[in-house]
Design a protein around this nucleic acid. Sequence first.
DNA 1: ACGGTCGTTCGAGGGTCATCGTAGTTTGAC
DNA 2: GTCAAACTACGATGACCCTCGAACGACCGT
Lengths: 116, 116
Amino acid sequence: MTAATSTRELAHPPRTDIRLEGVLHALSDPIRLRIVRELAAADCELACSHFGLPVAKSTTTHHFRVLRESGLIRQIYRGTAKMSGLRKDDLDALFPGLLDSVLGAADAQARRLGDG
Amino acid sequence: MTAATSTRELAHPPRTDIRLEGVLHALSDPIRLRIVRELAAADCELACSHFGLPVAKSTTTHHFRVLRESGLIRQIYRGTAKMSGLRKDDLDALFPGLLDSVLGAADAQARRLGDG
DNA sequence: ACGGTCGTTCGAGGGTCATCGTAGTTTGAC
DNA sequence: GTCAAACTACGATGACCCTCGAACGACCGT
């Protein structure tokens, strides 16, 4: 309210704090996996509201926070929107090939179960 | 006891029932990830008791069941011992490269955190 | 038959998690 | 200044999960 100022900063774990177990747990929820897939497909930052998730807004906030705190995504405020993007650089450096494998597996499963 | 006989059968999900979310969830627990890593390193079937896990026996049973029901491992009784082995064939067919990526990531993290 | 080893089952406790509704905050536009 | 839009914070609820101890069942020796 006073000077402190227009920067609403969000806490992100540094690269060295990202833990494999946390990443896997974050990806093990269907809604979060879907978010990550759309983020990877878009290959740019997306606003939370453009995902059309089948849950309440407060639940959406929760899932994005889990993704951010596990190190999977980076988030910044741009006006009233909160933009999210994959931390592909950090993840590839820590766990080479992991993200692509999971995304490929998700695609394969979606194809197999007959659903985009 | 009678004729029925030495077959104590264990229920395994068929390949087509294995779900990526379930696999990732199973791998997101430190103890289960450790089991999978040792299984991959051994490249053969191992008895539950040869893992020296830092939990009670009933907890060990629980973790092996989660791994089996998620489709990650195959288990058979051999005498009093229960042997476990990775379902590498099924996993590679469903999710090519996923298992190797996760194992590689686990190795990288173990190396980085200074621990075998 | 007996004892020991290996693993299971059951119930319970404690924790985390996904979900929601409501109320509130920040921001951009009029 | 006011208003709507985007997101957050808070409390609550119900589910799931990791853990354990104690009692039981299956198997292999002797």
